[in-house]
């Protein structure tokens, strides 16, 4: 299981990547593995408002469903239509092709308060899911 360096993480197993003044949000490799085969991704429309900690969409597997929680507040600038069409992309490439939404952060400080890769690794170890 991969925990990618340089990304920010949440305890709800989302990742966030800073790109210029925008952020890209997706779910972690651990999350996709726990859900296993993802069959449906529900995403907001561009222009929607994200409120840190609130659900903004959901990811559905055969026998599980997980809400997507916004790591930060902001406005959605783009959504990944490719994962809506072919949800298996999230299983294959959670950190690249399987991104979910792109957003304009309302408060840059919020990003800094998220977990680092090391913090996230520690979290998973606590869950008894140490990565190799």
């Amino acid at each position: 299981m991969e925990i990618r360096e340089g990304l920010r993480y949440t305890k709800d197993h989302e990742w966030l990547r800073q790109e210029g003044d925008e952020v890209v949000i997706g779910i972690t490799d651990y999350a996709q593995e726990q859900l296993s085969d993802i069959v449906f991704v529900e995403l907001p429309e561009p222009g929607a408002t994200l409120q840190a900690g609130d659900a903004f969409g959901s990811v559905e597997a055969v026998k599980a469903v997980a809400d997507l929680y916004a790591p930060i507040s902001g406005e959605v600038t783009a959504v990944n239509d490719a994962v809506a069409d072919d949800p298996a992309i999230v299983n294959r490439s959670p950190y690249e092709d399987g991104w979910m939404v792109r957003a304009q952060a309302a408060d840059a400080g919020e990003v800094e308060s998220l977990l680092s890769a090391a913090d996230y690794r520690a979290l998973l170890e606590e869950l008894g899911e140490a990565s190799e």
Partner: peptide
């Protein structure tokens, strides 16, 4: 589509 149903959701 069992995730619609009460035993999961």
């Amino acid at each position: 589509l069992q995730t619609r149903e009460q035993h999961i959701r």
